[in-house]
C-alpha cells in the first residue's frame, strides 16, 4: 500500500521580481520528522510561507495532506503550527496569555484554550514561568514559548524555522530533544535549518535545497550510508598500523589520530584485526565510517 506524502510540491516555482526563490521544486515529504536543509537564502522560509498560504506560487502546485494550498489556504493553515525564526512574541504578555490567545485564534473555545495553553507550556518546560512577562525570558525560554504557541492547537504539521538559532549548547540539545519528542506525538515536523547536525540528530528524512532547487531528498539513514571505509582507533600507535596494512597491500592513512582503511571485501576486516593482533596494539574502536550530511550536501550540491 502506498502512503500518501504529507506535503507534495510539484514544479513549485516562486519568483520575486528577478529573484527566483524556489525553482521548479518537486519533492514529496512523508509523515514524520523531516529536515529542510539549505544555506541562508536557499528558499526554506519561502517554502514555509507558501505552505501557510501567505504567498502564491508563481507556478507549480503545493499540497498538504492531499489539499492544494492555493484552493483552500485557510483550511490548510488550520492544520499547521508555525514557529518563525525571528522574535515574534508580545513582550508585555505572559507565556500563558500568549499560548491561550493563539489557541483561541486557532478556533478553540476560551476555556479549552487556557487548558491547552497550560498543558503545552508544561510540556515545553515553562510550567513555572508561564505567568511571567515574556520580556524577562531568556532566549531559550522565548524559543520554548514560540514552540508552545505552535503546538497549542494540536496541529497535524509543525513548521519549525531554525528552532535552535541563538541557543547555547545546552539549550540547543534541550530544544532538539523537545522536537524529537513532539515527533512521537503523531505530529509531523518540518524542521528548516542550515545546521545539518540538528537534522541528523532528530529527523527521519531530509530534503536539501540550494538556490531554490532540490539537491537531494530521502531517508536520513539512507543518505548517511556506508562509504567503504573503516575507522580504527589504536591510540597513538596509528602509524605502526598504517605501515603494517600498507605492507599487506591495503590503503590506509592516519586521520585525526585514527586510522582510516579502505575495505573492498569482508576479508579485509580480518586482515586489519590480524595486523592489530600481530603488533599487540590496543584496539579502542573499529567501525564503519559514515558520511555526514555535510558530505552529502556538499557532494550533491556540487560544492567543492
Amino acid at each position: 500500500m502506498t502512503v500518501e506524502p504529507l506535503v507534495r510540491a510539484t514544479a513549485l516555482t516562486k519568483r520575486f521580481g528577478s529573484v527566483t526563490a524556489l525553482d521548479a521544486l518537486t519533492v514529496d515529504i512523508p509523515h514524520g520528522r523531516t529536515g529542510l536543509v539549505g544555506a541562508n537564502g536557499a528558499g526554506k522560509t519561502t517554502f514555509f510561507r507558501l505552505l501557510l498560504g501567505l504567498g502564491r506560487a508563481t507556478s507549480g502546485r503545493l499540497e498538504v495532506g492531499g489539499h492544494a494550498v492555493d484552493d483552500d489556504p485557510i483550511g490548510v493553515r488550520s492544520t499547521i503550527g508555525y514557529m518563525p525564526e525571528h522574535d515574534c512574541l508580545p513582550l508585555d504578555q505572559t507565556a500563558a496569555d500568549v499560548a491561550a490567545t493563539f489557541a483561541e485564534l486557532s478556533g478553540l473555545p476560551p476555556r479549552a484554550a487556557r487548558q491547552r495553553a497550560s498543558d503545552v507550556l508544561d510540556l515545553v518546560g515553562l510550567d513555572e514561568a508561564r505567568f511571567r512577562p515574556i520580556a524577562g525570558f531568556s532566549t531559550g525560554m522565548r524559543q520554548r514559548t514560540k514552540l508552545a504557541q505552535a503546538l497549542v492547537a494540536d496541529p497535524q504539521l509543525l513548521l519549525l524555522d531554525e528552532p535552535t538559532a541563538g541557543l547555547d549548547p545546552t539549550g540547543r540539545e534541550e530544544m532538539l530533544a523537545l522536537v524529537a519528542r513532539v515527533g512521537t506525538f503523531g505530529i509531523s515536523v518540518l524542521l528548516a535549518t542550515h545546521l545539518l547536525d540538528d537534522v541528523q540528530q532528530v529527523c527521519d528524512n531530509v530534503v536539501m535545497i540550494d538556490g531554490g532547487a532540490l539537491v537531494v531528498a530521502g531517508a536520513t539513514e539512507g543518505l548517511v550510508q556506508r562509504t567503504g571505509m573503516v575507522v580504527v582507533d589504536v591510540g597513538d600507535r596509528g602509524g605502526e598500523l598504517v605501515s603494517a596494512l600498507v605492507a599487506r597491500g591495503m590503503n590506509a592513512t592516519v586521520v585525526d589520530d585514527t586510522v582510516e582503511v579502505t575495505v573492498t571485501a569482508v576479508d579485509d576486516v580480518d586482515t586489519i584485526r590480524d595486523a592489530i593482533a600481530d603488533l599487540g596494539l590496543p584496539l579502542h574502536r573499529l567501525s564503519n565510517r559514515f558520511r555526514s550530511l555535510d558530505d552529502v550536501f556538499l557532494t550533491a550540491a556540487g560544492h567543492p
Binding site: L52, L54, I74, G75, R77, S78, I80, Y82, P84, H86, D87, C88, L89, P90, L91, F102, L105, S106, G107, Q149
Partner: peptide, 11 residues
C-alpha cells in the same frame, strides 16, 4: 513586536 506572521499563520 512582529506578531503579525504568527497571527496570519492562523486561519
Amino acid at each position: 513586536n512582529k506578531v503579525l506572521p504568527l497571527l496570519f499563520a492562523r486561519p
